Amino acid sequence: MQIIRKIPVKQILTQSSRAELKDRFDERIARLDRECRQLSFEQKKLERKPGVSRQEVERRFSKEISRRRDQMRWIEYQLNQLEILPDGSELETDEVDALIEVNEGDSWNEMIRDQQMIIKDGIVIRAR
């Protein structure tokens, strides 16, 4: 039998990986900002529509905009932490699904032990 298990991918921080992560965070912030502006536009458009409750529209859109702004603040915090961390630090950047073969008689503890992949400058250096 095969099972799917999530395995964290950790990246060793170097100058190039720091720049790559910063670019990725900046892109996510820009995307979230565009989404906020688009939602505001859609909100104003719906509020002018007859037969639609302004309060309900405002409540729904405010909730979505607030959620995206919270995500932006979290990413900005991560950016600040990225600047503080020294080179060589391990950061959990992704999570991948791994297909694991399970047979009768296998040790379950061995199957569920902490597994992870370590990446340095785009190259897998350890799979443990």
Rank of each mutant, 00 (worst) to 15 (best):
Q2S: 08
K6S: 07
K6H: 07
K6M: 07
I7Q: 05
I7K: 04
P8G: 03
I12Q: 09
Q15Y: 07
K22C: 04
K22I: 06
R24V: 11
R24T: 11
F25V: 01
F25K: 05
D26W: 03
D26N: 14
R28A: 11
R28N: 10
R31K: 12
E42G: 01
K45M: 07
L46V: 06
R48Y: 00
R48S: 09
P50C: 03
V52T: 12
R54E: 15
Q55C: 00
E56S: 03
V57C: 02
V57N: 01
R59K: 11
R60M: 12
F61R: 12
I65R: 07
I65H: 04
R68Q: 10
Q71T: 02
M72S: 05
R73A: 07
R73I: 00
R73H: 05
I75S: 02
E76V: 13
Y77S: 13
Q78I: 10
E83C: 10
I84G: 01
G88L: 11
S89W: 03
S89Q: 06
E90D: 06
E92G: 07
D94A: 13
D94Y: 11
D94V: 04
E95V: 15
E101Q: 12
E104A: 10
E104M: 07
E110Y: 10
M111K: 14
Q115M: 08
G122A: 07
I123S: 11
